[in-house]
Structure formats: C-alpha cells, structure tokens
C-alpha cells in the first residue's frame, strides 16, 4: 500500500488584509475609471497590503483590462526597492459580480497572486479576492482593518 502523494500547499496569500484607506483608494480608482474597468497592483508582506499601485488600463475597455506595461514595471521595481512582495492585482467589474470571469481565469498568469475584484454593479462597492491557479478559482477573505 502506498501513501497518497502529499497535496501541494496552495501558493500565494491565504487572505488579503488592507487598511481602510487602501480599500477606499482601490474603490476610488475603480470609480474614476468608469465606464471602463480599472486596474492596479498590490504589494506588501504575507497577506498584508502595504502599497496600492493604481494603474492605467491599457485596454481602455468596459469589459477587459490590462495593466499598462510601464505601470507594471514601475510598481514591481518600487515594491522591490521597498523590500515588499507583489501580492496581487486588482480590477473592477463595472456591472457584473466581483467573481473571476472566464477571461480572468484564462489570463491569470500569476498563480501565486491574489486577484482582488471590485464589484461596482450594486448600491455599494464589494471587494472579493481569489487565487487562480491552473484554471481553479479559490476565494480568499478580504479583511479591512479599521485603521
């Protein structure tokens, strides 16, 4: 009898923890991008976001986003200089649920990142986060600290 092979531990953050100001900054950027989707990057340590990098949406589209490549480079270099890890990216869904679309899954090239989605379709914005690896979606908690 052989033991089952060990299940690989999921990579990437198991939650996303934000201060209230950073959560508000993400929502503000998402609303400012309307009618298009808005996007950006998140850097920090472990599960805690310490820097939010709003970015331009190179697609300039209400149904897709692509972080402008120079913005991506500058964010990654800045995070590296601060000794932070890239924790993930964020983008808005202007009308649909904040849940990964087929496009989000197909273009999730960072399996060890958290993908934070801001839903703007309801009366209040909703933030949800996911890890997406090999086509599988796993929701992780979004924890907003009061301070």
């Amino acid at each position: 009898m052989t033991a089952d092979p060990p299940t690989p531990a999921p990579r990437g953050p198991r939650a996303i923890r934000l201060c209230r100001a950073d959560a508000a900054a993400i929502v503000t950027h998402a609303r400012a991008g309307l009618p298009d989707e808005a996007c950006g990057l998140l850097a920090g340590t472990g599960e805690r976001v310490e820097v939010v990098y709003p970015a331009a949406n190179a697609d300039a589209s209400p149904v897709s986003y692509r972080v402008e490549s120079r913005d991506q480079w500058h964010a990654m270099r800045d995070a590296e200089a601060r000794g932070l890890e890239m924790l993930g990216g964020f983008h808005s869904h202007t009308h649909s649920e904040p849940y990964p679309s087929a496009t989000d899954v197909a273009q999730a090239f960072y399996p060890d990142w958290a993908y934070l989605i801001v839903g703007l379709g309801g009366a209040e914005p909703v933030l949800r986060a996911f890890r997406i690896e090999s086509g599988a979606i796993a929701e992780i908690p979004v924890l907003v600290d009061p301070e």
């Binding site: 897709s64 692509r66 490549s69 120079r70 991506q72 273009q107 090239f109």
Partner: peptide, 26 residues
C-alpha cells in the same frame, strides 16, 4: 520595449532583459 523598437530593439553586452506576463483579464 513597446516604447522602444519592440522586437527590433537593440541589445548590448551586459544588458538585462526581463520578461513579465501581463496582468490582465476582463
């Protein structure tokens, strides 16, 4: 390189080329 000459961008000895997947979705 999208702001240079894309694939025709010249490289020199000692240059560092970094490849990054785009952060994208819909």
């Amino acid at each position: 390189v999208r702001y240079l000459d894309s694939l025709a961008t010249k490289v020199d000895d000692g240059d560092v080329v970094s490849i990054l997947p785009a952060v994208a979705g819909g």
